[in-house]
Amino acid sequence: MALTLSDRVVIITGAGSGIGRAAALQAAAAGAHVVVADLNEHAANETVELITQAGGGASVSAGNVADQAAVDRIVADATTHGQLGGLVNNAGVMDLFAGAAETDDATWERCIRVNLTAPFLLVRAVLPHLLEAGTGSIVNIASEAGIRGAAAGAAYTASKHGVVGLTKNTAYTYGKRGIRSNAVLPGGVETNIMSSIDQSKINQDGLGAIGPVHQTAVRNAKPDEIAALVTFLLADEAINVNGAIVPSDGGWSAG
């Protein structure tokens, strides 16, 4: 099935690598102009180069999506390329696998700011444009940690549960006005998210506590496999899918 994303602009955060890059490539192949938003401008430019080499349309809008000024600029940049039609909130950071008693303020605040507040800021910023058009799709990358308590530490788990709540509320509030909001919940994926933390500071007791749960996972997914679901949810073919919280974990959440 050929997915339809032509004649619209899609913002994808964290698109310099991993799931974000794979989603950017697939969305562009489906006809979207992709705004590649990433903190790492060099990585963002590499993604744009890959898209343009394949004949697609893309542009870079580098910045920290946890910052309101950067969010405003990214959305403003996107609107210069055409009708804004989609948003993928993919950028995220990991925590140190610690429980609440062992989680420091800095880790908590960073996870909540990047993983939850940033998606909220972007959703709030794009909604006026989507509502004016009467159509649009928001896809939030949550996590297995968004539906269970044994996939990460307290900070990451709380942030991803929040993403699930944001997704559902947005879907319910704006669905009758043509806006769809869905979340994808990956399990383990072959990305560089662990580079977002100092791995020497991982809480070993916390990691040990959730280790048996992680061992029940089937395997780590490829970014392309998650991106395929993201691209479907962005596309017109998913017009009847709204408010869905969709695991993409090889069946891990079924156990």
Results as ranks from 00 to 15, higher is better:
V126R: 05
A30H: 09
M194E: 08
A23S: 15
G250W: 06
A54E: 08
A100Y: 09
V126T: 06
E144I: 12
G20S: 05
V139T: 06
I197S: 00
S59D: 03
G31Q: 13
A125P: 06
G82M: 07
A44K: 02
D38E: 10
E102Y: 00
V241F: 15
I245G: 11
A70G: 09
E190T: 05
D224W: 03
V88M: 07
D67Y: 04
A15P: 05
L207T: 00
G208M: 04
I74D: 04
G153N: 03
E41W: 06
G243R: 09
H81L: 15
H129G: 02
I202C: 03
A32S: 15
G208W: 10
G255P: 07
A154K: 01
E41A: 15
V35A: 07
T135Q: 14
N169T: 14
A235N: 14
G188S: 10
Q83V: 08
T191Y: 05
G134L: 12
V71T: 12
V213Y: 12
L5H: 09
H129T: 04
I112K: 05
S143R: 00
T107A: 00
R113L: 10
H161M: 08
Q215P: 01
L234W: 10
R110Q: 14
A69T: 15
A98Q: 04
I179M: 10
P212S: 11
V184T: 06
V164E: 09
T80E: 09
G149W: 00
G57N: 14
A30D: 14
G175W: 08
G206K: 06
N192Y: 01
D249Q: 10
P186D: 07
E144D: 13
L130Q: 08
R180E: 11
G20V: 07
P128Y: 10
G188H: 09
T79N: 07
V218P: 13
A254E: 13
H214K: 14
N203R: 01
L166T: 06
K201P: 05
N240G: 08
T107L: 00
A158Q: 03
C111S: 12
N220P: 00
L121H: 13
V246N: 05
V163I: 03
L25I: 13
S195F: 02
N140S: 12
A227D: 10
G31K: 11
R219A: 07
W252G: 04
H161E: 09
G251S: 14
A2P: 15
I74W: 05
P119G: 02
G153E: 01
G243M: 06
L233F: 13
T157R: 02
N40V: 05
E132T: 15
G92E: 02
D205Y: 01
V65E: 08
Y172T: 15
E225W: 03
F97E: 04
L39Q: 12
N240W: 13
S143T: 00
T170A: 08
L5P: 08
E237R: 14
A43G: 03
V230A: 14
A58K: 02
G55N: 08
H161V: 10
G134M: 12
